[in-house]
Design a protein around this nucleic acid. Structure first.
Lengths: 119, 119
DNA sequence: TTGTTAATTAACTTATTTGCTAAATACGAC
DNA sequence: GTCGTATTTAGCAAATAAGTTAATTAACAA
């Protein structure tokens, strides 16, 4: 199972500071100091958050002189998206349309017919 | 912000036992004993996992005689799906196609033109 | 009342997380 | 080499999390 990876990803994302760091990195690479700047938190604390994100595979780090530029790695986020997608039917539509949705999932691939989705 | 709710949801989902419980509940309501049955874990431990899920709004509980049937509440999962969707562009397509994707997002609604996606 | 089943709470242990400050490391400039 | 900047590591404290067993509450049955 890649259960462990889901564990690490979810628990990494459970911290608002780390989510904010990811949001910042979505706009491009950044150094540790740049990432730390918005937070009322010591640099070592940020450094540890980055280590958590790195161990979860959510960021990677380069080396440029004395800087360690961080960049977003989204593969684990894709796992999250895939996981949560299994539950979409519980919020996406009325219960009546659930069967339709399941059927659509099963038949959409082979045919690829007219795209009549509402959203 | 509903940041706190994201915190609670992500941290609830960071445990494989709790994710398994949700998967079970996706098939329908279940009692605490039914939920505990697959796990090599004491009942109080399961009871606490359920409390975590309940406080995160991921399950709700009824009362039928001495049973407390649990059922899935997917609203927080929708928040997760919305959150992760912001990062889709980082895994969904090559970097070159990212701009196209963003443009598609902005223009898809008004026009609804020909659907020329590859997948 | 007594007994049985379902579930929670209490009390405790252990491990992890998160923050801090101070010290250490890495690198480039001089 | 020394200085200054960037970042990490060490050591500590407080809080949280996750499991255990034993005791308790709640509802039904006899």
């Amino acid at each position: 199972m890649m259960d462990d990876r889901l564990d690490a990803t979810f628990s990494s994302l459970a911290d608002p500071t780390r989510r904010a760091i990811l949001a910042r990195l979505a706009q491009g690479e950044a150094t540790v100091n740049e990432l730390a700047e918005p937070f009322a938190m010591s640099l070592p604390a940020i450094s540890r958050h980055l280590k958590v994100l790195e161990r979860a595979g959510l960021i990677s780090r380069g080396r440029e002189a004395q800087w360690r530029p961080c960049r977003l790695e989204a593969a684990p986020l894709k796992d999250i998206a895939n996981w949560v997608e299994h539950y979409r039917r519980f919020w996406d539509a009325s219960f009546d349309r659930m069967a339709d949705y399941l059927k659509e999932l099963q038949t959409a691939k082979p045919k690829g017919g007219p795209d009549d989705r509402k959203n």
